[in-house]
């Protein structure tokens, strides 16, 4: 069963593009990463799924409920963290968390207390006095305290210190292990590589790719690093060539044999060949698209 499914989903703001013909399927129990540059349409897709904005065309369902007709059923089973967490400034942290639980007609006190402790929140502080990071933590508690089936988190770690970032991902993995689905929208490509099973790339409103993170990173491209380089022939056909002192690194997409042939005339001490991390893959993916569009 799919936790999220969209077919030809489009959203336009007047004539301005939001998302165009997005076909997305996120399986139940997945840990899905959604990547794209600013303005690519990540938040538009999420806001359409949650009924905050209405679609222009296509169809969308969350947990098998239609996004237009069954908003309440969807929102009952979803925990959502917006990218910019804004709340009622005059409330205290505990008042806001209780207010969120009341809107869900749930008593989440035990779960909320545990989350407050793990995220090191001060429950008696006014929301208006909180830093961006602490407001984000409040948003995370509100999104998680009712133990939903699906977590939709838009930039969950922005503004958080590394220790809390780790705690947030621990929490998400615990919930994912219990069977919940996590849909994570982020700019931070390493988060996708470290935590997600599947990932989708959106750019200029279109979903370019959606696949297992392993498949995305195993593209045949290799990240090659040469150390102790004394002599190097012209590196034809490689990407992302970088040189720092006597260390040279580049991405090779032409296969190992042409690489060895190319390096036969080079003089160096050591060489490592590894799969590039997701960041490298996505950046070269964007570059390829840019080059195609330029042609």
């Amino acid at each position: 069963m799919d936790a999220i499914r969209t077919e030809k989903l489009s959203k336009y703001y007047g004539s301005a593009r939001g998302i165009i013909d997005v076909d997305l399927a996120v399986e139940k129990g997945d840990f899905y990463g959604f990547i794209g540059p600013n303005g690519a349409g990540k938040s538009t897709l999420i806001r359409t799924l949650l009924g905050i904005i209405s679609k222009t065309s296509g169809s969308a369902s969350v947990l098998n409920f239609d996004c237009s007709a069954n908003k309440n059923e969807i929102l009952t089973n979803v925990g959502y963290l917006p990218a910019e967490a804004s709340f009622y400034n005059r409330m205290t942290v505990s008042e806001l968390i209780r207010f969120s639980a009341k809107l869900r007609k749930r008593d989440c006190k035990r779960e909320a207390d545990e989350l407050i402790e793990r995220l090191r929140l001060e429950p008696d502080k006014k929301i208006g006095q909180l830093s961006l990071g602490n407001r984000k933590k409040v948003g995370i508690v509100c999104a998680m305290q009712h133990k939903p089936e699906l977590y939709i988190l838009d930039e969950p770690t922005s503004g958080l210190d590394p220790l809390i970032q780790r705690e947030v991902f621990e929490l998400l993995h615990e919930r994912n292990d219990e069977g919940a689905t996590v849909f994570l929208s982020t700019h931070v490509l390493s988060e996708i590589g470290h935590h997600c099973k599947h990932a989708g790339i959106i750019r200029e409103g279109r979903l370019l790719l959606s696949d297992a993170v392993e498949k995305i990173t195993h593209t045949g491209a290799k990240l090659v690093t040469l150390r102790g380089v004394r002599e190097l022939p012209p590196m034809v056909g490689v990407k992302k060539l970088r040189q720092e002192n006597d260390t040279v690194s580049f991405v090779c997409t032409e296969g190992i044999k042409p690489l060895l042939k190319l390096l036969s005339s080079a003089d160096f001490d050591d060489m490592t060949v590894e799969d590039p991390d997701i960041e490298e893959v996505l950046m070269s993916y964007y570059d390829t698209i840019d080059q195609k569009e330029a042609k």
Binding site: L50, G51, Y80, Y88, N89, R104
Partner: peptide, 14 residues
């Protein structure tokens, strides 16, 4: 105006 609509409207209340 105060950017709290997204918080309120993503709770299960019509």
């Amino acid at each position: 105006n105060e950017h709290t609509a997204e918080f309120l409207l993503t709770h299960p209340i019509s």
